[in-house]
Amino acid sequence: MLEIHNLHAAAGGRAILKGINLTVNRGEVHAIMGPNGSGKSTLAGVLAGRGELEVTDGGVTFQGQDLLDLEPEERARAGVFLAFQYPVEIPGVNNAYLLKAGLNEGRKARGETELDAMDFMALIRDRMKLLEMDDALLNRPVNEGFSGGEKKRNEIFQMAVLEPALAILDETDSGLDIDALKTVAAGVNALRNSERSMVVITHYQRLLNYIVPDSVHVLSGGRIVKSGGKELALELEKKGYGWIETESAPATA
């Protein structure tokens, strides 16, 4: 599904990712953990095609094609979804309208017919139940006046509607209280299947109690310094990130 090979990336001339290697197979959920500033969000941004990030070396293959060669919207239409850490507000633009436009762009790209308003409404009603979304959020402008929790829930709701092949969740747990976290996690889990891969980026192990990953990777200084099973997350929770950074110090020297 996703193969990241020796990925180097910089922002504003400053090197942030310094050789990431990662393979995510179909249906797998990988968690990427790491201290602040380790490059987690940069990795998410590079995969989604954020303009201000510059790939300086290495490559990314997604479903056999060169991901970095695609424009952000082409990646989205090919099935790459990013749940934003900080979802932006777009005043005056109806939430459902944006979603319908995005969904139909994807369908067009796949050679499917566009959904009309009726079919679309049926689809989103169904998905809203999944996220216990309030109807009102649909017809409000995108993220405008949403609470932090509502914004994150809205991201996962969008994912549920767009049904991507690869979902990248960038600190979806940040700013959520425990109830909201459970709802969001339940939504994510409902979308897990043997076809869909996920990369879950988080600072805290807490989220991984609810979204149980197949693999856990620790990102530090722009590299993956340790990989393991879900138990690695628990170990990190106990010991913090310090021991890994110490352990991996020779590698970064």
Binding site: G49, P72, E73, L82, P87, I90, L99, G102, E105
Partner: peptide, 11 residues
């Protein structure tokens, strides 16, 4: 804002 929309599939 533009990037957000593009990430959802819009040109």
């Amino acid at each position: 804002q533009i990037f957000y929309c593009r990430q959802r599939g819009l040109s």
